[in-house]
Amino acid sequence: MATYKIKVNGITKTVEAEAEMPLLWALRDLMGLTGTKYGCGIGSCGSCTVLLNGESARSCQTAISDVGDKEVVTIEGLGGKELHPLQKAWVEHDVPQCGFCQAGQIMAAAAFLKETPNPTDAEIDEAMNAILCRCGTYPRIREAIKAAAKEMK
């Protein structure tokens, strides 16, 4: 066990954990941030996606000891006081069905739009293929990403 100080959503948190504990479980079980979801544990579905220094990362594949001083942003901290344009677009386009993968979808989309502010359908496909939605909300995710991209211009 070791003590880790990590910055999550702008707040420095101190947790006691085994070095290899994935950030996913540290967030969910030690910090009570349950917006980040477990979907596979092997980096295949992307439900656990968070931002690490602004880049999309699978929290189930990121050991707590590897976080270091990188800033972690989870779905709970994406918007700040206002909703992030992606969150707004998700609501307006009525994207969620069961909703369980949507935190991962939104976090991946946030990282993607930062890199690719004017995405084509093909670019959206390529980037978002990493995040599985079992309900099949993909067409609305695609529309919501385009709407958010417009809004963010």
């Binding site: 917006g35 709970e76 992606l86 609501v91 009525d94 935190a103």
Partner: peptide, 13 residues
């Protein structure tokens, strides 16, 4: 729209 959308997209659901 679904009544749970806001909670889902903010991680509060």
């Amino acid at each position: 729209n679904r009544v749970d959308n806001l909670d889902v997209v903010t991680g509060k659901a």
